[in-house]
Design a protein around this nucleic acid. Sequence first.
DNA 1: AGCACGCCGACT
DNA 2: GTCGGCGTGCTC
Length: 853
Amino acid sequence: VEVALPLPVHQTFTYRVDGPLPRAGSRVLVPFQRAERVGWVLGPGDPEGIRGIRPVLDVLDREPTVPPDLLALARWMSEYYVTPLGITLRSLLPSVLSDGSREVLRVATGVGGGTPTRSRSGPAGSPRADASGPEASAHLTSRARKVLEAVASRRGEVRVAPLRKALGMGSIWPEIRALTSAGLLEHETLPPPDPPVRTRKVVRIERWILDLGTREETFGRAARQQECFELLEASGGGIELAVLQDEHGFSRSVIGGLEGRGLVRVADEEVLRDPFRDGPPEPASELTPTPAQASAIADLVGALDEERPAPRLLRGITGSGKTLVYIEVLKEVVEKRGGSAIVLVPEIALTPQTVSRFRTWFGEGVAVLHSALSQGERYDQWRQIRAGEKPVVVGARSALFAPVRELGAVVVDEEHDGSYKQSEAPRYHARDVAVVRARMAGALCVLGSATPSLESWRNALGGRFRLLTLPERAKGQPLPPVRVVDIRTRGKKGTTGPEGPARILSPELTDAVQARLRRGEQTILLLNRRGYSSFVQCRACGEVQECPHCSVSLTFHRGRGRLLCHHCRYEQGAPDRCPACGDPDLSFRGLGTEQVERVVAETFPRARIARMDVDTTSGKWAHHEILGRVERGEVDILLGTQMIAKGLDFPRVTLVGVVNADVGLHLPDFRASERSFQLLSQVAGRTGRGELGGEVLIQTALPGHYAIQAALSHDFPGFAERELMERTAPAYPPHVRMVNVVVSSPDPEAAASGAEEAARWIGALIGEGADEGRKGSGSGPEGSGRGPFAGIRLVGPAPCPIERLHGRWRWHFFLRGGTPGGMTRLLRGFAQEFQPPAGDIRVAVDRDPVALL
DNA sequence: AGCACGCCGACT
DNA sequence: GTCGGCGTGCTC
């Protein structure tokens, strides 16, 4: 059989099987080098040209874990995103199914003199203090001794991978081998663990008694048994044994009696874990669709019958009721056609509230896949989906790969959201893969957003997607009026100096908040930057503290009293004087949410304030706790980063204030304007949802910027038109497809030369060095070849905008244009054949990147 | 990724 | 003469 292994190698392997061939998509345990690994069977293998073929050790699945449709999708992703198939498959499945074999070590038991003692870490080479050890230990290397000591100091079995990490050593297999052959250690490869399944005892009706006469005859004078049986009947046939005993008082003998008559059976059943199980219930109010909703629904329902329905782009302003449209489509798929559907939602919008809207209609038929699930919980959901018990799957990015049967529709809500792009290999975009999965299944794909990505918008304008619009809010409320407050002139006039509160909360915004407090209404304040200040600068010498691993300034977090790097985990104590010149006069620059919180608390001492950003939501359910307080009216001002901009629906929020709309607008990324516009539009949509109306105030130093102007008038088409124009010269997505190749190394020279060599390699294939010479459009590739690579242009290499990250120096270059097929061939050749120069150099290929930092 | 093998400089 | 630190090529 041909087997895909989760290795960073663009190659598959062939193994021998005795007995029937396992079906494609089944997992197998195979010997690989000196370890055992889990891989996936792809089909019959070709033994031609392979020396010693090794045998499959075990077939781990009775039914393939990867059904044929998902295997085909994985193959497509593997090609398109230039990622080995095994790594792609691993990322589509619950991790328990692929985390593979575990190599364990333990101190050998059979050795005379007992276990080697805990070391007293004598100098290497010195005579051993404990004479009890066998002779063999005398000539161990110091490395081997370290390994042995480490194993001995942890009791029981020790896994190799964590041990190696703890020791900070490279490969420790030579040492392990030496120790095993010296009889000091035992080494064993354990099979993959059984997926964790908890069970409990459940009493379930085995034989139903419908006829009254039979019933009397059966039970006779066994009144308790009859009662118990009737309770079981009333509750659908199954009750947990412990509940029957403890809560209903049926003794073991009553249940035993029923068992003896063959009426019930006591069996172990799996306990399924589901943290969303107790989400708040939502009344199933049957809403009447607006005319716009009704016509969107009609189109979508009609599309379900098409052979190959075109993807639909549903553009509905915030509050226009896109979810109602989704639900109607799902009902059609699930109830009328017996199919299943997948609904993708951005991670932070995946709340019990969101889920409960689907639960209202589909009840237990809804599976939820969420990043906060434990491995076991995820696996539980996955099994139920595969068993066909959950026709509706709601989840974040990876829910797209739910093994549903009869896929009828895929919905991608907030399709413009950047969190749909995976940042590790396979670097897929779930929106794009959703279109592909739906197409492969002949299913309908619905992309929904108030502010579609320009990629989808262009597809809709060009007819590849069908555009559906919900131009009005479902309850007829108007979109809130938006006002701009120019903050350029503030500060000088402010009473407390240039850094004082007046610069942070303009008089206009202060008055507006004050009015809400007086009326008992709520305010949302957005500032898309966490921490207290994004950098700390010495007023004497100008020094700014940077992260030692990344080329970014350290952010001051006042709550923790520390400086943190927002890219890696680095942190250090906050300085009280400049580390360079010793001057104590430090200025805290670059406003963050912590500082706003402080200013707001000082300005409105009576207000109840909640802050929501990644620093206040570290716990698993912290989001829900904070939002619950807002919902119950225990919060007057909710302050936070972009995580408060999505999906919240609180009718008493009548003011949204954007503290500084310019954060992010100047990032060196062609999507900076698009992201700002989306964020402003989204947060604006948080108000005016109830009868109280609403208002939005945007503070900015760039009141004339088109992204802000468009947000003022809620004008998505206008914004899109302008932005599409901005991206024509030089050509950026969506006009061309783009690939970002990032080369990194701990050594800055190696990163630069690695990027140059990689670019040269590709340049030679596509017939050009770089793109600079050509101005204007990217068309007309006269000299540059007309083969499969025609039209592909290379730009760069250059240092990445964040040139150092996690201790690695980074260079990158772009490829753009050409045909998708040509690009795939180019990239595959590159991935398979390009050898980076020696040293620790990594090459990451990011196709259709969403962020270029 | 993780392993073996081979080369080379440093240390005993 | 050995040990340990890389670089290179291969894994069914």
